[in-house]
């Protein structure tokens, strides 16, 4: 690799590391400044957990440039939009909705444990037994199993679209959550673009054939993930009246990204002048 390319990749690496630091620092500062009432600790655990979830997803996307493409990035972005809608909906009435959220999760875990137990009856597996024990202990540490209900419907009692509507995330639902669902659920609108390519033979009716071609890398996906984590940070800041010193992820991303590519452009121009 020539010096110029090496230098650019070093700068990109620094950009990614610094971005991750910004997110990490943002989570830490917000947690310290949140007016946590330990009596209702679950509310702050859910809020903090969802914010950390957003930051983690964005950090891991940043650290993996090879997945800044249409195959993988939309799956992560869909998870992030879902996390934001969940957070925004919960923040409309935290005491009631946090309970629903947690109980649903515990119920799902209970259901999984029951499936595992049924499986182990037919197939005596020591590893599965250990897994069951571990999961039961985890469940019991949160809520007694005999009090845990299992809900096989929606955790909120609403579809995601209704939740988004109630939580003023209509636009996010329409322009991000729904389109990214195509990749997440392997739907035709995604598959036909990313996993099929046209045969140019007219005798074959220009049919499409399976393709495992690599998709081109696009930092726009990382930009979007910065946007979504920024949205979640901003919402929590607004609800709790937090003043945060750490840069907001999106502003930081835009400024530093522009600098990175402006520098690259200058380097290229300088080289052409040589």
């Amino acid at each position: 690799m020539d010096d110029e390319r090496q230098e650019f990749f070093q700068k990109l690496n620094n950009f990614i590391n610094n971005y991750q630091d910004i997110l990490s620092a943002g989570i830490e500062e917000r947690w310290l400044k949140l007016p946590i009432k330990l009596y209702d600790k679950e509310i702050y655990e859910v809020i903090g957990g969802l914010l950390a979830r957003q930051a983690t997803l964005s950090m891991l996307l940043a650290s993996s440039p090879y997945i800044w493409n249409g195959h993988i990035a939309p799956i992560i972005l869909r998870v992030m939009t879902d996390a934001h809608i969940t957070l925004a909906w919960i923040l409309k009435d935290p005491p009631d909705r946090v309970k629903k959220y947690i109980h649903y999760g515990l119920g799902q875990e209970k259901l999984f444990i029951e499936h595992l137990k049924a499986g182990v009856e037919e197939n005596d597996d020591e590893d599965i037994k250990k897994l069951i024990k571990y999961k039961e202990e985890w469940l019991e540490s949160q809520r007694r199993e005999f009090l845990t209900e299992v809900n096989v419907g929606s955790w909120s009692g609403l579809g995601t679209r209704e939740m988004a509507n109630e939580a003023d995330c209509d636009s996010l639902y329409k322009y991000a959550y729904a389109p990214f669902s195509g990749a997440t659920h392997n739907m035709w609108q995604h598959i036909s673009r990313f996993n099929l390519k046209y045969c140019k033979n007219p005798l074959h009716k220009y049919h499409k054939i399976p393709s495992v071609d690599r998709a081109s890398l696009d930092p726009d996906y990382l930009y979007r993930s910065a946007k979504y984590v920024d949205k979640s940070f901003a919402l929590v800041d607004k609800i709790f009246g937090l003043t945060i010193d750490t840069s907001m992820p999106l502003n930081w991303f835009i400024e530093e990204f522009d600098k990175l590519f402006e520098q690259k452009k200058t380097d290229v121009e300088n080289k052409e002048d040589d």
């Binding site: 045969c199 033979n201 074959h204 009716k205």
Partner: peptide, 13 residues
């Protein structure tokens, strides 16, 4: 006619 296409000729990319 269409079903014979793959037998008559190869795919092109």
């Amino acid at each position: 006619f269409w079903n014979q296409g793959l037998k008559i000729d190869k795919c092109e990319f």
